[in-house]
Design a protein around this nucleic acid. Structure first.
Lengths: 245, 245
DNA sequence: TAAATAGTGTCTCTAAGACATTATTTG
DNA sequence: CAAATAATGTCTTAGAGACACTATTTA
């Protein structure tokens, strides 16, 4: 009987592999404005988008990174020194045209940092790193690659979630007052929030614990709070402003 | 003066590229149950996860696919014949361990289809394709790769969004009655929805248009509606059941 | 005691929740 | 007319929105 006709183990698929990166949209609140951390692309004319602002990120290192999220955390640590911020995946963008070097996929995460004097680190291939304030749906300047689109998506996601989650609390330092938290909501949303309703809503959920201390100033001092759980955001049952849209 | 020390154009980065795939979570409502389309992995023992159920999908073809979404639509067409369903990106999953063939990234999309007799197509490397009913957070069986986790995330996303969007309408055929739409919400949410509030909410938004026809049966006939816009979902200002959580 | 901001109270209005009731078809 | 389901109405209640008011600090 002839040898069974089988059994070449199915080889690894022959498809050409796209370039694979991880990029970050890192938000903070600074000087009463929502800001994103951007880095400047190298100026060498053979680099893609020389001299343009871009999202921080870079290639996945399959030797060092165990997973996409691990890769994101590594890059975040390298850029900001912060190890445990709020981090969530935004999505992935991939296609033939977005990077002149070839078909590429980027996996994008977005992070929320308290601005406790975190100064961005200019790294290996980042001449310059800077917090740029968000205006409307971008930073008022065309970014490298498709990073405009990605940044806009991140802003939209953040604004959307702020309506019904506790995300802005992750933009503040460990301890904060209710008016400070309210201000963070207003900065992200770009519109005022009604004080009384805000307070009842926030305090009704099991979000905060009082700390036995107050923030003093030239006026009545404000109660300090901290997050019960700095790892998981709270989802409110309702949105902030039902009137219209 | 010595030659300027520069100008090797920065070569393409030397990093090894991960495997890159696109997978799909395709939902429909069938026989009064939420179902997902799964395919069976080839049984050859050298294939990863032989004989297991898995999400439909496969490698990106950088020759044919212009973008991740185009790739997802191609695969969706190949599996179901449907060209224009509701499609949104769920996210990407990547790491060293999820595929025994090496560091891999999958970009996952989820689709909602009306079950108008769409029968899955068993394709090249899919011995069998089947609609499996969703129970709780899966299909009651361990899937290949990390597809359990991905499917659970898709279910969570769908259930979450159903609370405040019109997504279930995309699980129904072109024309449907309000009770049918309500039933779709109930099937996805896994709990009853109050009729009166449901109707006012749905009709208050600019979601549906009446069609001059009714669904008849052994009882009072029901008004037929269709979506004003079959491409974009509606977001409701409030959630469906604020009571508790 | 004035300025400034923190924090509470009051009133209205909208929409959800929980029903009960009416409407329109078939057998 | 009974069965069945569609569609509407009523009453209560929770919470947002708007805004007035009170509280507590510093200068």
């Amino acid at each position: 009987m002839p040898r069974k006709a089988t059994v070449r183990p199915p080889a690894l698929p022959v498809f050409e592999r796209p370039l694979a990166t991880v990029d970050l949209v890192i938000f903070t609140v600074r000087a009463d404005a929502l800001c994103a951390l951007l880095i400047r692309r190298p100026r060498h004319p053979d680099e893609p988008f020389p001299g343009r602002w871009a999202l921080p990120g870079g290639f996945i290192d399959v030797e060092r990174d165990d997973s996409l999220e691990a890769c994101a955390r590594r890059k975040l640590r390298e850029k900001t020194g912060v190890a445990t911020p709020y981090l969530e995946q935004l999505g992935s963008w991939g296609g033939r045209k977005r990077d002149p070097r070839g078909w590429s996929v980027t996996n994008v995460y977005f992070a929320l940092l308290p601005h406790a004097g975190i100064e961005p680190v200019a790294g290996a291939n980042a001449l310059e790193a800077r917090w740029l304030p968000i205006t409307d749906d971008g930073v008022g300047e065309r970014l490298a690659f498709d990073h405009d689109e990605i940044l806009a998506a991140a802003i939209e996601r953040l604004r959307g979630k702020v309506e019904y989650t506790s995300l802005p609390a992750f933009l503040l330092p460990d301890e904060f007052t209710l008016p400070e938290l309210q201000r963070a909501y207003e900065i992200v949303l770009g519109r005022p929030v009604e004080k009384s309703a805000f307070r009842t809503r926030i305090l009704a959920t099991d979000l905060l614990t009082e700390v036995p201390r107050q923030r003093t100033g030239p006026n009545r001092p404000a109660q300090l709070y901290r997050l019960k759980d700095r790892d998981t955001p709270i989802f409110f049952p309702r949105t902030f402003s039902p009137r219209g849209d």
